[in-house]
């Protein structure tokens, strides 16, 4: 299902990093592949009371409690395609592990640092905070997700 898109000479270049791209709310995003632990199908999450809307709850990931975040909701994107979003990307950020619920996983991309451009500074968009860079691939704009920003800090209060 996932095909490598990379030409060999590119991966050898130290300035090239691999990214997992996925679809959420109809938009293209990607995350550094080094931060991805696994990809799994959706499971019935146990609701966490008093949690922000974008927290779907927790699921059992082989004995550990894995919080699941509805990424579309977190990014304030169109959430109409609810039923389709049943893929969970398990990511690790520092010592925390979180599942990101997305529409679908698309590809593994090799992107050279030179091909990344900084996101425009548009204060009206809250999601500006969650994108660390942009790139163009086959005429599609792909956002590099800033995972650290997506995960609220441990003391951030409910939205």
């Amino acid at each position: 299902m996932v095909t490598a898109h990379t030409s060999n000479d590119k991966t050898r270049d130290s300035n090239v990093h691999e990214y997992l791209s996925f679809l959420v709310g109809g938009q293209d995003y990607c995350v550094d592949i080094m931060q991805v632990r696994e990809i799994r199908g959706g499971a019935k999450a146990t609701t966490l009371p008093h949690s922000p809307d974008y927290m779907r709850g927790v699921i059992n990931l082989r004995g550990t409690v894995l919080p699941i975040m509805d990424l579309a909701s977190r990014l304030a994107l169109d959430t109409e395609t609810d039923g389709d979003r049943n893929v969970i990307i398990v990511v690790a950020i520092s010592d925390r592990i979180v599942g990101l619920m997305v529409d679908a996983v698309s590809d593994i991309l090799a992107i050279a640092e030179d091909d990344l451009q900084p996101p425009p500074d548009l204060p009206a968009d809250q999601q500006r905070n969650f994108v660390s860079a942009l790139t163009i691939m086959e005429n599609r704009m792909i956002r590099v997700l800033d995972l650290t920003a997506v995960l609220p800090s441990q003391d951030e209060e409910a939205a």
Binding site: P49, S51, V58, V65, R96, I97, Q154
Partner: peptide, 11 residues
């Protein structure tokens, strides 16, 4: 299973 480490405190 603690929630504290993976998620945080839930009232």
């Amino acid at each position: 299973k603690g929630l504290q480490d993976s998620y945080g405190r839930v009232p």
